[in-house]
Amino acid sequence: MPAPQAVLDLVQRYEFNRPVYHKGQKNETELRREFLDPFFRALGWDVDNNKSWSEAYKEVAHEDPIRIRGQTKHIDYSFRVGGARKFICEAKKPAVALKDDLDAALQLRRYAWNAGLKLSILTNFEEFAVYDCNVPLRKEDTAATARIAYFPYTEYEKRWDRIATVFSPEGIQKGSFDKYVATNGEKHGTAGVDEKFLEDIENWRLLLARNIALRNIGLSQEEVNTAVQLIIDRIIFLRICEDRGIEHYETLHALSHNEGVYARVCDLFRLADDKYNSGLFHFAEEPGRDEIPDTLTPTLVIDDSVLKTIIRRLYYPESPYEFSVIPAEILGQVYEQFLGKVIKLSASHRADVEDKPEVRKAGGV
């Protein structure tokens, strides 16, 4: 498929004005309006919603709002087919050199990975970069990590067929997008947000279970299971509330800076009981309420190091998660797998985790 004349005209106009753009005289909004909107129109996207579709089914969502680290950010473009987001594009002004811009790459990858997207684009029109968003973020990442395609605007003409095959609505519907991911994605170190989160909460369960069993010798196996489940559920619930703007960001994180972490965490749980009035936080008898209050977890002894490990893993830079972005169905799938295992106590009161008997018998959840 040859490049449309509209794209060739964009390349020519950019080339002519490039020295001026590099002096900073072209901001991101202008770039999007004058270059990227026409570029994506040429790929076949209804950038202006000329079809007058409802918000849920618009092909292109502009300035898609999300909350990242307690602040509302906006993704420049979200591209959707049948209402389902397929990839996003983050735009930068021409003066930004994207090839080595780690912050721009991490911004794109963090959102896309948490949203469960396979590929996404980072561009300032002059540079076009495609990232494999199945790769979770790591501290040692560079701007090139998970980047599977990179080329300048001068190559748009010869690469147009490949761009359109993968990123046009028609190409996505024909399966070329998914095929490109399977063929070109990084083969090692990939893990979806569901796999990574499941791995983390399973590690936290074992860490908590062993510490609770060690420091609270009189507990039964059932009590250890109940306590561990409640503590993890409460921490994750409050952390999700932070990312979604319901709780102040880093409220939990602030509790991990000093000693006596669990006592302060329990105080936060009691405040949540007053605020949410839910079964997850229920510590005292209430008139007309049949649920049995939790008198177990407030009495536990838990080492600071254990809680600090769990809490810090839920915040940047140790955490790759943006809970305002992770779809509810992914969290549900993770918990389905998580609840398929149970904590067992040995004769010496050491805790281990194994599949529930009914799960083993069925061959999995």
Rank of each mutant, 00 (worst) to 15 (best):
A95F: 07
V81I: 15
Y21F: 13
G189C: 04
I236Q: 03
K93P: 10
A284T: 13
K361L: 04
E157H: 02
R162L: 13
L208P: 11
R264T: 15
H253I: 03
L8G: 02
G279C: 10
R289Q: 04
L219R: 00
R109V: 14
R18D: 08
G70Y: 08
G44R: 04
V81Y: 07
N17T: 08
D48C: 11
I232K: 04
A149M: 10
A209W: 03
I201E: 05
R159T: 06
Y276F: 15
S324Y: 12
Q173M: 11
E157K: 01
A3G: 00
L207M: 08
I311E: 07
E170P: 05
E247G: 00
Q333A: 15
R234C: 07
D243I: 03
A254I: 11
H188P: 07
C266Y: 00
E127L: 00
V359Q: 03
E318D: 14
I330S: 11
Y77V: 10
C241G: 00
D48W: 14
K23Y: 04
R215M: 13
T123A: 04
A182I: 07
D274F: 12
V130H: 01
K341L: 10
R85H: 07
Y57A: 12
E242M: 01
V47M: 12
H188Q: 13
D46M: 05
D76F: 02
F35Y: 15
Q107M: 06
A149V: 01
P136G: 08
D274S: 09
G279S: 13
L238Q: 06
T154W: 01
R239S: 09
